[in-house]
Design a protein around this nucleic acid. Structure first.
Length: 277
DNA sequence: TTGTGTTTTATTGCCTCC
DNA sequence: GGAGGCAATAAAACACAA
């Protein structure tokens, strides 16, 4: 990992001097501190000036990878909530404020974005699953209705035949879906780009671009594959989203949608699903 | 206390953008 | 070409059951 280490040990401190490829020199070591103690001590990485300061060395034990204090994490979380990308000026300001190196702040944001993305994928999956289940129930219900109506037509035809009246035809085709208004949803093709979703963490609302007929998900909303899903989204009530850890913004990015299979017209697919455009 | 699974911090390598 | 982003990964720190 590191390009070179120099182990050192004394009565005061014990650890490893790390010579990193990027030219940084860092110190690692071990301690038997409690978590509480840890939170009171300095962060692991300090400026090279500090690290070569003898007084500093006498007072401070170099540590191995050190967890950030709750206060530091809180401030970082707040900053992330405001904006999940870190421009250089803000990085420097945060680093100064927190007593960390800018690199640490950048790394924290990088990892935080990764965690956020993982959570978001989980939420998207849950939402899609709920939507699928809901749509499946609807399909099954309507299919039963269809069968029921068919048998009614048969029955009535038999009665008409008995009275020698021309029969009504039984259409051997599947019925069309309910009108959009009746079904209480509207279909919208959507397409989102990962870059757009990640560009900021402060968004959260979805807007519909009527000109392009696309559901435009504002930055940081969802992680459906970019331009790879060409299905349709329809708004429906009652799909719950979850806010797992509370540290995320807790927004529901697709809490009111479900997805139907791809289609280019009002028709049925191979599995008998109703699809529309 | 110890083994094990999870979380957090940090590095590496590759990619994109300017 | 340098800066910054991301995915993958390592490893320390932590949590927790046995």
């Amino acid at each position: 990992m590191d390009s070179g280490n120099l182990f050192f040990e004394s009565s005061a401190c014990r650890g490893t001097m790390l010579f990193l490829r990027n030219g940084d020199i860092r110190f690692g070591g071990s301690s038997m501190m409690s978590t509480d103690e840890t939170s009171k001590k300095r962060p692991f990485f300090s400026s090279s000036e500090e690290l070569f300061d003898e007084e500093y060395f006498d007072e401070q034990l170099p540590e191995k990878k050190r967890r950030l204090t709750p206060e530091q994490v809180l401030l970082l979380e707040k900053s992330f909530e405001a904006e999940n990308k870190l421009e250089p000026v803000r990085k420097t300001q945060l680093a100064n404020k927190l007593g960390l190196q800018p690199r640490q702040v950048a790394v924290w944001f990088q990892n935080r974005r990764a965690r956020w993305k993982t959570k978001q994928l989980e939420r998207d999956f849950d939402t899609l699953k709920s939507s699928y289940d809901s749509l499946l129930l609807k399909y099954e219900f309507t299919a039963k209705e269809n069968e029921k109506l068919k048998s009614e037509v048969l029955s009535l035809n038999e009665k008409l035949q008995a009275k020698d009246v021309p029969m009504a035809p039984i259409l051997d085709q599947k019925i069309d879906p309910l009108p959009v208004e009746t079904a209480q949803f509207s279909a919208l093709p959507f397409s989102t780009r990962v870059e757009d979703r990640l560009s900021t963490g402060s968004g959260g609302s979805s807007v519909v671009d009527m000109d392009s007929s696309q559901l435009v998900v504002e930055s940081g909303d969802s992680y459906f594959p970019a331009n790879s899903y060409t299905g349709y989204v329809a708004c429906v009530k009652g799909v719950q989203s979850e806010d797992d850890d509370g540290s995320d913004d807790g927004r529901s990015y697709f809490s009111d949608v479900f997805v139907a299979p791809e289609s280019h017209g009002q028709n049925h697919d191979a599995l008998g699903w109703w699809v529309w455009s």
